[in-house]
Design a binder for these strands. Sequence first.
DNA 1: ACCCCAAACGGACTTCACCCCGGATAGTAT
DNA 2: ATACTATCCGGGGTGAAGTCCGTTTGGGGT
Lengths: 209, 209
Amino acid sequence: MNAFRLPVGPPSAERADAARNREHLLKVAREMISESGVRRLTMDALAERAQLGKGTVFRRFGSRAGIFAALLDDADRTFQQQVLYGPPPLGPGADVTARLVAYGRARIEFLLEHHAIERAALDRNQQVTIAAGGMSTTHIRMLLGQARREGLLHTADIDSLAMQLAAALEGPFVMYLAPEENATAGPARRAVALADSWESLVEQVLKVQ
Amino acid sequence: MNAFRLPVGPPSAERADAARNREHLLKVAREMISESGVRRLTMDALAERAQLGKGTVFRRFGSRAGIFAALLDDADRTFQQQVLYGPPPLGPGADVTARLVAYGRARIEFLLEHHAIERAALDRNQQVTIAAGGMSTTHIRMLLGQARREGLLHTADIDSLAMQLAAALEGPFVMYLAPEENATAGPARRAVALADSWESLVEQVLKVQ
DNA sequence: ACCCCAAACGGACTTCACCCCGGATAGTAT
DNA sequence: ATACTATCCGGGGTGAAGTCCGTTTGGGGT
């Protein structure tokens, strides 16, 4: 044997069976959610239906909220792809203001779409990632940085502003709309109003006027 | 007996013993929290320490989150008093921009102070009131209305803007900071930065420049 | 092919929020 | 004072999240 070896090279990926189980659990979770909603997805039920032990479910996702977070992760990744590499104005190519506006509109649509899961991913014992390292904060900060370089913005503390704008964008959905609720006209109408309001907020911050 | 009587006049207040128990429970809850933090306030422990049945605790507050909400209510009321009737710039008398800025700063301080309880008052099965009918949204909307009357603002949809500003103000605290966490310099420093950022955000929205 | 052990698995166990409902009681009408 | 009833109280019961730890297994090393 080697006299000396580093314990791990790369942070060591999941074992094959673990990865398989993760996928399987996510698939079953999606099924259960579309059949009977977020509320009825219990850890016991999920484990049983997936033919796995409950311990396994927890090992894979850490908590009930973790399952929803993992589910969102998928969708998020797709969304992020559009933002980073898709066509303008959402993707690169348009001017900063247009991109910020487009991002807000797209993000609102996304949040409306995944609202139930988004809510379920909240965890009483865990800080929420939305405002912190969340996609919105990061992307908005990036755009604000660009805006400042272009002289559209003179704010010193871009980090704080990014966080506040991200909260302004996502907050109303995460904090306001009811858990599962009738997805009738109500939320959708409000979403349009919020999107318009976001647009004018962005324009004021970037002093387009 | 009277031939006919309305079932209730005023929404019928709490019975004396019930009110007494509520106060007592809140007092004990405050003690327990300051002794060992929010996490260890369980319904069983509270009931036992208060020498009351668990059922009573639930009857009085509805849920665990309800206790924290009731606790916050006190503090909120005091805060609101300052905002409505206190000295300017927080209270009435100063110009709109100054009042908005002052409100934000005061609110941030308040949130920082009551952060642990604020988080604990969140309830997985209940929509959050912060953005909805919350004090911040209401007060900000009022000030925005005044600003519009004074020609400082031309936004049509004041409701949406109020919600977004409230989210920008409170979101970072409710969503971002960790549950109980070390109340060291970290959060406080961030709070100052956010307060400054709030000020410049308000000034831009009210186009003071 | 075999060894080895870190990682994964399973499911009983613990803890806790919340429900239920029979029994007690405060406040009111007589 | 007495009776009446809406409200309250108590604490055992239930369902679900999360923990623990003994057992099993994937897969790199030899």
